[in-house]
Simulated assay, not measured.
Amino acid sequence: MSQNSKIVYILLGCAPDSIAKTVLLPATPACTNRILGFLKKSETRGQTHRGKVNSLNVSVVPTGIGCPSAAIVLEALHRADVKTAIRIDFLGGLVENIDVGDIVIADSAFKGDGTTRHYMGVIR
């Protein structure tokens, strides 16, 4: 077993080839459960869930809340050769025209967490 495979297995409880190349990354159990309701032909291995959304193979890998826990999951996904990782979850807002359940696609983000700065030279 390769070093990368060992790390993926230790952190996510599955082999790298069990993870789709496109991954959705929810933080909360409520969001994870809601996303899993959209997957067809889903299967769970370790802490990952894999299935189809329409014809696209996707995995759902919960990260927990906060950048440090998300960074650990992203390190494992990088070692599993994942090509696309999409953060998805519930959010709060400061404007009244966004209702509970609305979908918001952010075009920018504030990086004041303390973890992101360690990856800024690596992120493309």
Rank of each mutant, 00 (worst) to 15 (best):
S2W: 03
S2A: 09
Q3D: 13
Q3S: 12
N4D: 15
N4A: 15
S5Y: 02
I7C: 00
V8G: 07
Y9R: 14
Y9K: 15
I10T: 12
L11T: 04
C14V: 06
C14Q: 04
A15F: 05
A15T: 10
A15N: 14
D17K: 11
D17A: 09
D17W: 06
A20T: 13
K21C: 09
T22E: 13
T22Q: 13
V23H: 07
L25E: 07
P26G: 09
P26C: 08
P26R: 08
A27I: 05
A27K: 04
T28D: 15
T28M: 15
T28W: 12
C31T: 11
C31V: 08
T32S: 09
N33Q: 11
N33P: 01
N33H: 09
R34Y: 07
L36W: 05
G37N: 13
G37V: 10
F38K: 11
L39R: 08
L39V: 11
K40P: 00
K41R: 14
K41D: 15
E43R: 14
T44Q: 15
G46R: 05
Q47G: 12
Q47M: 12
T48R: 02
H49D: 06
H49C: 05
V53A: 07
V53E: 04
S55M: 09
L56Q: 15
V58L: 15
S59L: 09
V60I: 15
V60R: 03
T63I: 01
T63Q: 01
T63V: 07
T63P: 03
T63A: 04
G64E: 04
I65Q: 10
G66L: 08
C67P: 09
S69P: 01
S69E: 03
A70T: 14
A70G: 14
I72A: 03
V73L: 00
A76F: 02
A76M: 05
H78S: 11
R79Q: 14
R79V: 06
A80H: 10
A80P: 11
A80R: 10
A80L: 10
V82Y: 02
K83A: 14
A85G: 07
A85I: 01
R87K: 13
R87N: 13
R87C: 07
D89G: 15
F90I: 05
F90P: 00
G92T: 11
G92M: 12
G93Q: 02
G93V: 06
L94C: 06
V95R: 15
V95W: 03
N97L: 05
I98T: 01
D99W: 02
D99Q: 11
V100T: 06
D102K: 00
D102C: 02
I103T: 09
V104Y: 04
I105D: 02
A106C: 14
A106Y: 10
A106V: 06
A106D: 10
D107V: 07
D107R: 12
S108I: 03
S108W: 03
A109S: 00
F110E: 03
F110V: 12
F110Q: 01
G112L: 00
D113E: 13
T115L: 12
T116V: 12
T116G: 02
R117K: 12
R117L: 05
Y119E: 05
M120A: 00
G121I: 00
V122F: 01
V122C: 03
I123L: 15
I123V: 14
R124Y: 00
R124H: 09
